[in-house]
Design a protein around this nucleic acid. Structure first.
Length: 207
DNA sequence: TAGGCCATCTGGTCCT
DNA sequence: AGGACCAGATGGCCTA
């Protein structure tokens, strides 16, 4: 595989990389809860213990970047014809390690770079939607953060169960309790259509 | 250490 | 033409 020079942010954390720009002082780390339930209630009311994550950073100091930051980078790109390769590529002898962004050697077009920024921005918006969805599916207080695929599958199963509750006409609490006794069998074949889902729902405080 | 998960880069395709 | 969307490749982190 072709080895490409890379820019080492850790070796040169003070440089003014013209297109990433200085780190935004408003950027904040959002640590995961240490134990039990943290407050996601502003979004959901009750379900998920996980806060909203903006981005697992690839940037210095593990800071996080927001859509606004990417907007700024995109704006900085406007009007440029081509990146100055001397600003982009700083070959180093040591290997890239934790969260290094590899930047290809020239020729490197601004257009491609702008597309990368747009793509990251797009992925950030998708991830924020996943975070929002995580807050709406039932999770245990001690449960680790759901993966994207598990979030989708659990959401599908959850919707199916809510639909079943609607059709049954029962009170949700009694329906879940009944499922706990008899075992929940949905007509959908989702992975989460097991006692696992009803166990999760038993954590919910029904009104 | 292997496997799962994830972020990022990239080039192709579709859409406006 | 340029942006959005998508999927493949790659490499880092974490956990069992």
């Amino acid at each position: 595989m072709m080895e490409e020079p890379f820019y080492d942010f850790e070796q040169d954390s003070t440089s003014d990389f013209p297109f990433w720009g200085p780190m935004d002082s408003n950027i904040q780390l959002q640590p995961q809860p240490e134990n039990g339930l943290s407050d996601c209630s502003s979004l959901t009311g009750q379900l998920s213990p996980w806060p909203s994550f903006t981005c697992q950073s690839m940037f210095p100091d593990d800071a996080q970047i927001s859509l606004t930051d990417l907007d700024g980078q995109a704006l900085q790109l406007e009007g440029s014809a081509e990146l100055d390769s001397s600003l982009l590529v700083q070959p180093k002898a040591n290997k890239p390690h934790k969260h290094h962004r590899l930047i290809p050697a020239p020729p490197y077009k601004v257009q491609r770079y702008a597309a990368n920024i747009r793509e990251r921005k797009r992925m950030l918006s998708i991830n924020s939607a996943f975070d929002e969805l995580r807050c709406h599916v039932p999770t245990f207080p001690y449960e680790k953060r759901l993966s994207k695929i598990d979030t989708l599958r659990l959401a599908i199963a959850y919707i199916a169960l809510l639909n079943d509750i609607l059709i049954s006409g029962c009170h949700p609490k009694s329906y879940v309790e009944q499922c706990m006794k008899n075992g929940y069998k949905s007509h959908k074949n989702a992975i989460w259509n097991t006692s696992d889902l009803t166990t999760r729902l038993s954590w919910i405080k029904w009104n």
